[in-house]
């Protein structure tokens, strides 16, 4: 009917809005990487290189040319789908990103699923029973979640579950060395192994995933639980909840169909923020669990002024943010009919 094309138009409009954002990001990421201290040519030439060989490398990398020329060369490469070579690993940046980004996505996604599964019920229960023991538990978990640094929780979990109890495998990357990585489909090991029908590998990949995901999840749990509790409390005060109760609707219906669907909107926003934040900022978790993710890659590249890698990282993260925001907007319009009406 009328409502569908209107929402489609809204989505299309949002997509168009992303274009200037992307252009801006290309420019800013290029300029920022040039502003980094340090000279990639010096790093690439090695400690024993002479002035001349450094100069030679600089010319071969195109770094002797003026900034606009470098920029247009960079944009030209981008248009051809090339992100350049990483000078520290010698690999094409695109290849690195396509293997490392799914690793980060898998970890963050799983962590977020875990924290949603814990935080939302906790928040809902706390909101429906203010000042009960569950409310106090919610407050405790939230405070603990934000105040314990991830490297500490990570190490503590490793100590407990790997060293003391021996339940979990060694915290050494995405898959134990005994297994071969599954054929690449999505880049998510658990899913790829399941697609392949290799349940043993899937189980092993999952076993590797649990501890880092829980570590990250404990940290992201706090904002989600807080927001769920606050949003639910506010919605439950609403007049329409009273109407629903006065009409004799069951507690279940009032709580989920009426209250939660209204309260979910700010929670979705928080989820989006937490996800994008966790994806780029979980370097510590990746380091503790030797997880070959994108965060640690970016930090290493940054340290050695690896322009191509840093630009590739910034660009892929920006793309991800844009897609994520678009997804949130679309979810919003699906949940809230009032939004579809604005143009």
């Amino acid at each position: 009917m009328v409502r569908v094309p209107k929402r489609l138009r809204l989505v299309g409009y949002r997509l168009l809005q992303a274009i200037p954002v992307l252009i801006g990001i290309v420019v800013v990421s290029f300029l920022l990487t040039r502003a980094l201290p340090g000279d990639p040519a010096v790093y690439f030439a090695g400690p024993a290189a002479s002035e001349e060989s450094i100069e030679q490398i600089r010319v071969s990398m195109g770094l002797d040319r003026s900034l606009p020329v470098q920029f247009f060369a960079y944009v030209g490469d981008l248009l051809r789908g090339e992100l350049g070579q990483s000078i520290s690993t010698g690999q094409p940046v695109l290849t690195e990103l396509t293997t490392r980004l799914p690793a980060s996505l898998e970890l963050t996604g799983f962590a977020l699923l875990f924290s949603i599964a814990v935080a939302m019920p906790l928040g809902i229960l706390a909101a429906t029973r203010p000042n009960s023991w569950i409310d106090h538990l919610c407050r405790f978990v939230v405070t603990a979640g934000v105040s314990l640094p991830t490297f500490f929780t990570g190490l503590a979990l490793v100590y407990l579950f790997y060293f003391l109890l021996g339940w979990s495998p060694a915290p050494m990357g995405r898959l134990d060395i005994l297994y071969l990585s599954p054929p690449h489909v999505t880049g998510f090991y658990v899913i790829d192994a399941l697609i392949d029908g290799d349940f043993e590998t899937a189980r092993a990949a999952l076993a590797q995933l649990i501890l880092p995901a829980v570590t990250l999840g404990l940290f992201t749990l706090a904002p989600i639980a807080r927001m769920t509790r606050a949003a639910m409390l506010q919605v439950l005060e609403g007049d329409f909840i009273r109407t629903a109760r006065a009409a004799g609707l069951s507690g279940h219906k009032v709580l989920y169909t009426y209250a939660l669907r209204n309260a979910i909107l700010p929670v979705i926003t928080t989820l989006g923020m937490v996800f994008s934040f966790a994806l780029g900022a979980n370097v510590l978790v990746e380091k503790v669990f030797a997880w070959p993710g994108i965060g640690s890659y970016a930090v290493e590249a940054l340290v050695v002024s690896d322009y191509a890698a840093v630009q590739g990282f910034v660009l892929s993260m920006a793309l991800l943010f844009v897609i994520l925001n678009l997804l949130i907007d679309v979810t919003y319009t699906l949940v809230d009919p009032r939004l579809g009406m604005e143009d």
Binding site: G238, D239, F240, T243, T257, Y258, V335, D336
Partner: peptide
Amino acid sequence: NPRAALNPIR
């Protein structure tokens, strides 16, 4: 306040 008495997103 009838408007507030109805679920806004249903």
